[in-house]
Simulated scan of single mutants.
Amino acid sequence: MIMRVMGEGQYEVGDDHLNLLNELDAELVTAVESGDEALFREAYGKLIEAVKQYGTPVPLDSLEPSELILPSADATIDEVRELLMADGEGVIPGFPE
């Protein structure tokens, strides 16, 4: 799956890491629902770092479409809340828990 982190580029993440990303996404949902800015910052940072750690950067000259777009690492809790509310499934929709 190709994931774009706004302002940082695209990463191709293999299926073997999607369960971990889904777990981090669930933590993010909990943090956003709590309204706790520090908890949100920690959870979103862990999700972004996991995408970059387990993903392979897609070359900048590649025209591959992103299957998932994440806001930049400095996104606000309100920006991420809007994304979560769009489909109610977290920022990484459709993956089994």
Results as ranks from 00 to 15, higher is better:
51 V>R: 11
31 A>F: 07
52 K>L: 13
53 Q>F: 12
28 L>F: 02
36 D>V: 11
65 P>T: 11
63 L>C: 00
47 L>D: 07
46 K>H: 10
30 T>A: 10
64 E>W: 10
48 I>W: 11
61 D>S: 03
48 I>Y: 12
55 G>E: 13
63 L>W: 02
38 A>C: 04
40 F>S: 11
41 R>N: 15
59 P>D: 13
55 G>M: 14
42 E>C: 07
47 L>T: 12
43 A>M: 02
69 I>R: 05
47 L>R: 01
41 R>A: 15
63 L>I: 10
35 G>P: 10
31 A>H: 00
34 S>I: 01
66 S>G: 03
68 L>A: 06
30 T>Q: 14
57 P>S: 09
37 E>H: 12
49 E>V: 09
59 P>T: 08
66 S>I: 12
52 K>D: 15
36 D>E: 12
34 S>D: 02
47 L>W: 05
45 G>A: 06
58 V>N: 06
44 Y>H: 00
64 E>L: 11
29 V>R: 08
54 Y>S: 09
62 S>Q: 02
30 T>K: 03
64 E>N: 06
50 A>M: 07
49 E>P: 05
41 R>I: 07
30 T>R: 09
65 P>W: 04
68 L>M: 13
52 K>R: 15
34 S>C: 01
34 S>Q: 01
30 T>S: 10
28 L>Y: 03
42 E>N: 14
30 T>Y: 03
56 T>E: 05
31 A>Y: 03
48 I>G: 07
32 V>D: 01
32 V>Y: 01
33 E>F: 02
29 V>S: 07
66 S>H: 04
51 V>K: 06
38 A>P: 14
44 Y>K: 00
35 G>Q: 11
36 D>Y: 05
60 L>A: 14
62 S>V: 02
66 S>K: 04
40 F>V: 07
66 S>N: 11
68 L>E: 10
45 G>L: 03
68 L>K: 09
34 S>M: 03
55 G>H: 13
48 I>N: 09
65 P>M: 07
67 E>H: 05
28 L>C: 12
38 A>I: 13
67 E>R: 05
56 T>C: 01
36 D>C: 02
54 Y>Q: 06
61 D>G: 01
62 S>R: 10
37 E>L: 15
66 S>M: 04
30 T>L: 11
69 I>T: 09
49 E>L: 13
59 P>S: 15
46 K>P: 00
40 F>T: 09
48 I>K: 06
55 G>T: 13
64 E>I: 02
29 V>N: 06
29 V>C: 09
53 Q>N: 15
44 Y>I: 00
50 A>C: 09
48 I>C: 12
35 G>D: 11
54 Y>H: 15
68 L>G: 08
43 A>I: 03
60 L>D: 14
51 V>Q: 12
49 E>G: 12
49 E>F: 11
60 L>P: 06
46 K>L: 06
55 G>D: 10
42 E>R: 15
56 T>V: 05
30 T>D: 08
29 V>W: 06
31 A>C: 09
29 V>P: 05
53 Q>R: 15
39 L>Q: 14
37 E>R: 12
48 I>M: 10
61 D>Q: 04
56 T>M: 04
